[in-house]
Design a protein around this nucleic acid. Structure first.
Lengths: 348, 348
DNA sequence: CAGACTGCGGAATGCGTTTTCCCGGCGCGC
DNA sequence: GCGCGCCGGGAAAACGCATTCCGCAGTCTG
């Protein structure tokens, strides 16, 4: 344990140099090996001094001196949401492998807040910005956001959007439409004929894409969904519950199968069905999208479309760290997972 | 839309000053209003120039100049884990309210990695560090970590530990023992008599505390648990599954009720029981700890002890931002939630 | 043994800010 | 009319570090 006096200020490179009896320049060179060489004796003395004083370089000072930082910025909608936290896990993993510090901001699903965040983020001068937004259309703030990102990029920054294909930046998208399409075909093949879809308001792109893909898949199989069974509700568990309650109140109206555009909504729906005395999987099939952890643990286990969220985060970072030019668009594929909530009706 | 040429470098305060026809000093004063006053005409011209050039101050440069940053550092075990992501949500919320940027690092439940993170974090010179570690005892790295944190604090930094009471820093703890104690009493009151406990290896403090609290609560009610029913397993879903499988293999051995020190483990256990042909809640009661989202959604809904994780994060930030001296220890209370996985045996 | 070259240490410069210090002008009281 | 305080502007120092430039020794070449 060193002397550790009541110092109110951190130890600087200057202190280390003095302790080692060399100049600041030599100390700097010894500590982060530049192209210049420094005599081994001096080098070891500097390192010893640094260790003794417990020195850590001031990253901000390094950043201004070098003209670039070693941080990656991540903006998410809500870090408590498993969707975003899984992506965040991928991003932080890749960042750490690349020796980058990650700063995170949560936009709370508000485009205005998202804009404000990117604004202050730009001051951070991060190496790259990954935006996993909530994909809500909003024309006014959108152009402002674009301007901000454009300015950031023209100053040498790198931006990757997750799941926002229509912006002129690198993106990694999730195959929402394709996954829903495949799910629809699989369910049709399992013998289901009369469907309901629980979707979110049209401004939520993810919901729109999944819904469209699902309907396309059914159409391909010669099936359709009556308009009154495409039910719009909130993009939450409560939304799923509410829609299912309404449907159950009408005695299901012949619906054999409910597709909710989100696992969370699907789980809410299962809960509502049960509360109405209906057994999910038996009286009515339920399927979701995302494959969150709970999907496996509910009973009956929920049929869903798995999204490799962690992989999405990793991919976003890989793109951001590569020096390929031009807007790239990597689409990560999804896989449908049939489980007990949608037993085959063929054998019955 | 400004001219926006192919500039490869960000616009600096210098550019703004030149555009406004004033000195850098005045520009700085105009933009972040110091104690000095600047003529309103100049001020508006500076602001106009800043807006026109789309200027954002270089935060790193500000940091070195001012001698302090506006960032809060958060280190978590695994951001994809709902336990940590809920805490992270609280921390980021409080940070944003205080106008702080949050940088996040994930330690992956490894004390060595945690140490390394704090080391580089110290270079960041954050205003505060919140550590939500995995509470694994590890003597060697522990003292090194302490030294690092001590150095950080003596340089004016603030550190708050979550759930690590025994370190000489501010802490916010979760009443693990108390919650488990209350749960035990509630279960005993519901008529359960023969218990098993699924716990993690002794090095995991959280597990130890919850286990001890549970046993104390039973003792208080004149009950006990045979040693062979205190089963040590992994601190994961798979661990819970495995322990339950072993127990089911022995035909439950008269056990009426399983307490797993974690909801995740409890859910794994329910899955194993079901796979063994046993109905959780009917053939054997199951209880967990944490009240993660899934706990409500599994069937039967899982009896558990709710931990206000988001609140924990908020509290940690509140402590860190207050200027109270001395080590504070705020304990957040837990509440037991009896649900269908532990029906009362009194009425039977 | 002279001259070119190499290796390495230190002083100086720069990074984008803030902040201190100095200085000129203006209003005001006498 | 004159000194004095105040207001506001700019030059320059400071922040902690990286890097370029300069010079000094020592070594190699012929």
């Amino acid at each position: 344990m060193p002397e550790a006096p009541e110092r109110q200020t951190a130890v600087t490179l200057h202190d280390v140099a003095r302790e080692a009896g060399v100049s600041v320049a030599t100390a700097s060179r010894a500590l982060n090996g530049s192209s210049r060489k420094v005599r081994t004796e001096n080098a070891t003395r500097v390192r010893a001094a640094a260790a003794k004083l417990n020195y850590r370089p001031h990253l901000s000072a390094q950043a201004t001196a070098r003209g670039q930082t070693r941080t990656a910025a991540l903006v998410v909608g809500d870090i408590a949401d498993p969707y975003f936290s899984a992506i965040a896990a991928g991003v932080t993993q890749a960042a750490e492998e690349a020796g980058l510090i990650v700063t995170m901001a949560v936009a709370g699903r508000s485009p205005a807040r998202e804009l404000e965040i990117v604004r202050t983020l730009r001051g951070q001068r991060p190496r790259l910005i990954v935006i996993a937004g909530s994909r809500i259309d909003g024309a006014e703030t959108r152009t402002a956001l674009m301007g901000e990102l454009e300015a950031y990029r023209s100053a040498g920054g790198r931006v990757v959007m997750i799941s926002q294909r229509d912006l002129p930046f690198d993106t990694v998208t999730i195959d929402n439409a394709g996954g829903a399409y495949q799910l629809a075909r699989a369910l049709a093949a399992a013998g289901y004929r009369r469907f309901a879809v629980f979707r979110a308001p049209a401004s939520v792109r993810t919901s729109r894409d999944r819904c469209a893909g699902f309907l396309a898949g059914l159409r391909e199989m010669g099936l359709g969904v009556e308009d009154r069974f495409v039910m719009e509700t909130e993009f939450t568990r409560a939304g799923g519950y509410e829609a299912a309650r309404r449907l159950a109140e009408r005695g299901l109206d012949g619906v054999e199968m409910v597709f909710a555009v989100t696992d969370v909504m699907a789980i809410g729906a299962m809960s509502a069905f049960r509360d109405a005395g209906l057994v999910p999987g038996l009286d009515v099939g339920v399927a979701g999208f995302d494959d969150i952890d709970s999907a496996r643990d509910v009973t009956p286990a929920l049929t869903t479309v798995a999204v490799p969220l962690r992989q999405v985060g990793l991919t976003a970072m890989r793109i951001a760290l590569s020096d390929d030019p031009g807007p790239v668009n990597v689409q990560t594929s999804t896989t449908v997972l049939l489980r007990e909530s949608t037993p085959s009706r063929r054998t019955q």
